[in-house]
């Protein structure tokens, strides 16, 4: 690790300057986050004044009460949780065997499969959204949350396969060979040796899949048309276009919707770094 402070002859003032710069940059980056939270918590009469006070004069939670009382946000969040949970289950079922085959087995076509995964990972959703809608209509799968979860699964498994593969890669070869000597077959190696040793990787994959589905907007907005099937990202987008939603209620909805992903992404930050660059960069 290269450190500035240990360098002989480094000026005393440099750490101070760097600290100030870091604080300033972080403050600028964090300002929209601060504004989002403050706008949800400030008294309602304050939110429409100009210039808006940077520090709220009081904090109140009435916006959240109003949000849950007047908007079906609890229902939306529940449906989002449902779709996201299905996505996690589907992802784990598909990704565990595939990551094992990518990481530990040798077979013809492995790199071609890896390339196909990368292609699908990089493909913009917009490229397929119209044909997917046609396909779903012909199958009668529109306005079906299970089918939406299946689509979310298809779009998140490539990334998750990379994350779990890097996790499997980090298990020492010797442990697997010892298991093989002890008479495990390759299936048992996966279940009894690899999976117990890669729990953090499995957690990371679950978190990625959950919030990929939770945050997704494009497919949800094209495939779901019934109000009572709205997931939270859809519901939130409609609140945004409804002019009768008070601003602080809208902001409270935004905050409510963001709390979970922010918390969990922070927890698995390092895994994400590695996964999103397909393992090429250490996180």
């Amino acid at each position: 690790m290269s450190t500035v402070s240990t360098r002989p002859g480094a000026s005393r003032i440099e750490p101070v300057l760097r600290t100030v710069a870091i604080v300033v940059v972080t403050a600028i980056v964090m300002f929209p986050v601060y504004w989002m939270v403050v706008s949800a918590l400030r008294p309602s009469d304050e939110s429409l004044s100009f210039p808006p006070p940077l520090l709220p004069h009081a904090l109140e939670f009435s916006s959240f009460c109003q949000l849950f009382a007047e908007k079906p946000i609890a229902h939306w969040l529940m449906l989002s949780t449902f779709v996201a949970s299905l996505t996690v289950i589907g992802t784990l079922i598909l990704v565990i065997p595939a990551a094992y085959a990518l990481s530990r087995l040798y077979w013809v076509g492995r790199s071609a499969f890896g390339l196909m995964l990368l292609f699908t990972q990089m493909m913009p959703g917009a490229v397929v959204v119209a044909p997917v809608l046609m396909l779903y209509r012909s199958l009668g799968w529109t306005d079906n949350l299970w089918a939406l979860a299946l689509l979310h699964t298809a779009f998140v498994v490539p990334l998750c396969a990379w994350v779990l593969k890097t996790s499997f890669d980090s298990v020492p070869k010797e442990i697997i060979e010892a298991a093989l000597i002890d008479g495990c077959d390759r299936w048992k190696v996966l279940w009894l040796v690899l999976l117990p040793l890669t729990k953090p990787g499995l957690v990371a994959v679950s978190v990625i899949a959950f919030f990929a589905s939770w945050n997704e907007f494009l497919f949800a907005s094209t495939l779901i048309t019934k109000n009572d099937l709205y997931t939270a990202s859809l519901g939130l987008a409609t609140l945004m276009t409804q002019l009768d939603t008070p601003l602080f209620v809208l902001m409270a909805a935004g905050v409510t919707f963001s709390i979970l992903p922010v918390f969990f992404y922070m927890a698995i930050q390092r895994h994400l770094l590695r996964g999103l660059t397909a393992g090429a960069v250490k996180g």
């Binding site: 929209p32 986050v33 504004w35 989002m36 706008s39 919030f211 939770w214 945050n215 907007f217 990202s233 939130l236 987008a237 945004m240 809208l250 902001m251 909805a253 935004g254 905050v255 919707f257 963001s258 992903p261 922010v262 969990f264 992404y265 922070m266």
Partner: peptide
């Protein structure tokens, strides 16, 4: 990076 796109747009 963790905040979903819809609330980011709203903010």
């Amino acid at each position: 990076w963790a905040i979903p796109e819809v609330p980011v747009a709203i903010t």
